[in-house]
Write a protein that binds this DNA or RNA. Sequence first.
DNA 1: CGCGGACCCTAACGATCGTTAGGTAGGAGG
DNA 2: CCTCCTACCTAACGATCGTTAGGGTCCGCG
Lengths: 196, 196
Amino acid sequence: MIETGARRREIDEVASELFYANGYAATSVRDIARALDIQGASLYAHVASKEDLLWSIVDRAATAFEEAVERALAETSSGDPVERLAAFVEAHVEVATAEPDRSSVFIFEWRHLSPQRREAIGARRDAYEERLRGLIVDGLAIGAFAGVDPTLATTFILTALNGIAAWYRAEGPLSPDRIADQYVALALRSLSEDHP
Amino acid sequence: MIETGARRREIDEVASELFYANGYAATSVRDIARALDIQGASLYAHVASKEDLLWSIVDRAATAFEEAVERALAETSSGDPVERLAAFVEAHVEVATAEPDRSSVFIFEWRHLSPQRREAIGARRDAYEERLRGLIVDGLAIGAFAGVDPTLATTFILTALNGIAAWYRAEGPLSPDRIADQYVALALRSLSEDHP
DNA sequence: CGCGGACCCTAACGATCGTTAGGTAGGAGG
DNA sequence: CCTCCTACCTAACGATCGTTAGGGTCCGCG
């Protein structure tokens, strides 16, 4: 039974910030508690373990990416791989900028999960990547893209996308929309044949 | 006085592997020692502190990237920003694939350095990024590139490049040359105007 | 008024952390 | 043979780690 109370949400939020700022392993339970003005041991009234805390953050973020892309692709009635890929990138940027802390922890700290959970998240990440790769393969098949190894192109684009959560801050000068527009353009162009 | 003995090199290598695999904070001094079949305390005959070990890895990797790009750009007699950017990407890929562990630690673990060292590395990373940005700005100026915000394009490409060290393994099926070729193509295309 | 439950406390546990002190074995060079 | 040096050892330090046990306060609901 997963706790979902208001206090539990606050804990998730504070933990996300600290895990993002200092990394999971370098953040102690007492660090998180201090940010909440309580004692370290008091956290265990809400959380079963430190790793459970990481898991709840990672799982929530993974779900957010999955659902956003799912929704975006479902809403794109067009079968055009170019448009679908644009929708994928846009959705990813939206989630990454809406919750950069959580997203960053998901992307960079998931290796600290227990072996079983790490494996589960690994499979979901693989599926996510495969989804992107499928769009690129489709685009290559109809000639919308050309001259790239789909696997490498997928990695290229996805690592660039994942980087966003690491550097984006809401206080910065860049709006999520502008980032999305630019990243869509950069990604699509990278897949297109050089103009002859 | 920095030690440079053969044993010290081994220690750097083993530490790079472990820091890459588990992260700096999650790797104990005793973990490193165990991989060398010695006692934890024995490491301190070669290293002043755990953070010194991280620093030597990060500094060496940073220097490798800086020098490789410096050399590549110096050897590219052409003033063409497109060719120069290709040389930049190629050099980066070469270093990242030649020493993926060290490179990965440099890219993802430098925040665990002491404040002064972190600041120093931050400045060098900024300079590196600025170097790439300069090439993109130059390309935009002569019309070789178009339609991108140079700062966002720089981040897009550099995060994709930095990702390589995280996933590349020498045992994998991809040769460094092939990755370099593909990444050069992907990067250059991403900066080019859509074919009309 | 009584009671459960949400919330936090203090105290402490065993383990592990980075690091220091002091000592020993063996080989190289005089 | 003696000495220095490199390399490693054992033992231990204080600090901090994640976590458990048990108790207390206060509020809302019956």
